[in-house]
Computed example of a mutant assay.
Amino acid sequence: MYRFAPAAELRDVTMRDGLQLTGKMLPTDRKLEIIRALIELGVPSLEIGSMARGDKVPPMANTLEVIGELTAAELARCWVWVATPRHVEKAAAAGARNFQYCFSASDSHNQANIGRTTEVSLAAMPDAVDISRSVDGEIELCIATSFTCPFEGQVPPDRVIEIANDERATGATDIVICDTLGQAVPVQVQSLIERVRAETPDRRVVFHGHDTWGLGVANTLAAISAGATMVDGSLGGLGGCPFAPGASGNTSSEDILFATRPDWFEPKTLAAMATLSEELLTELNEPMRSKTVQGARSKGSSRTGRSAGSTPAAFEWVA
């Protein structure tokens, strides 16, 4: 069976970045159903919610309830978006142990997204690290708008490297490089990820991409080739940032998996994931953006010669 090398772990972000632009809050039980279905399918990591204010991002309003209903074993595979030490404290009290501390490389987006300058967010990170350590947790340094800002335009790569090397970010186990607008191209992604690996502290590198301009999978593969060992995606390409004009869906989890073929991903896994994705997007009245799901549901013929349509044969591929 074809495998993309080097390998990287998928983190599905449907329950956070996927939902936040929809404006519709899923009930806690429904979120738990989807989270547990993804875990059962073998998805290694998930982003399950955000500590953003519910009046600002309504779909995230029940994040603490979701955290509280998950087991310790389930939470070990789950990440929560945070932007302040207080966020970390509240999420940890509910049971979370993996925290994604996020702010933007550009001040304008950080002001729109979090309500403070990048410097203020960075200055507060040591306290966030201390709180995560007090519960034996892990915390990521997540840098939004690493390539382009909707208000300031292109973000210089040196700005990202400067933040990554700031001593106040010491203690982060991972660094997340975000193509928030989906405007980066593969050569940019490869170059920045290589620089992060070569010029900043030794941490796991995560790539968070969007498919706004159609390069989500290409950028993800470029990031993996450059050394990223975790990549983000969402079911059906759902998502986008409500505070970044022009940012649409995330890179599709199904498309990333079809391109990389990790050991746990089989045709039956794709079939089950596609059904889960289609049901969720129908529920949210959102379009299906996954090319893999669209291809599997096409009316053409499969490589096996059997009708594609919605039959299991549509999810088979040739080794």
Rank of each mutant, 00 (worst) to 15 (best):
A228E: 10
R203S: 05
P157S: 14
V196D: 01
G182Q: 11
G214D: 07
G182C: 03
A218R: 11
M230N: 03
A172R: 02
E162G: 12
R204S: 09
E162V: 10
E167N: 13
A228R: 10
D179P: 13
R168Y: 02
D166M: 03
L215W: 08
Q188P: 06
P186K: 11
R168W: 05
D202C: 08
H208V: 10
V205Y: 11
L181Y: 11
R203H: 04
G227N: 10
H208F: 10
I193N: 01
T229M: 03
G227P: 09
R197V: 10
I224Q: 00
V217A: 05
G227W: 13
E167R: 15
S191H: 13
A184H: 09
I175W: 01
E167V: 10
F207P: 04
E162H: 14
V187T: 14
N219P: 04
R204W: 01
E167M: 08
T170Q: 13
I161E: 02
I175C: 04
P201R: 08
L181K: 12
D174L: 02
R168S: 14
R195G: 13
R159T: 08
A226G: 11
I177Q: 12
T170L: 03
H208G: 06
L215G: 10
A222W: 05
V189G: 07
L215Y: 11
T229N: 04
D211P: 02
H210L: 07
T180S: 08
T220H: 08
R204I: 12
R197H: 13
G214L: 12
N219M: 07
Q188F: 00
G209P: 08
Q190E: 15
A184Y: 01
R159I: 00
S191I: 05
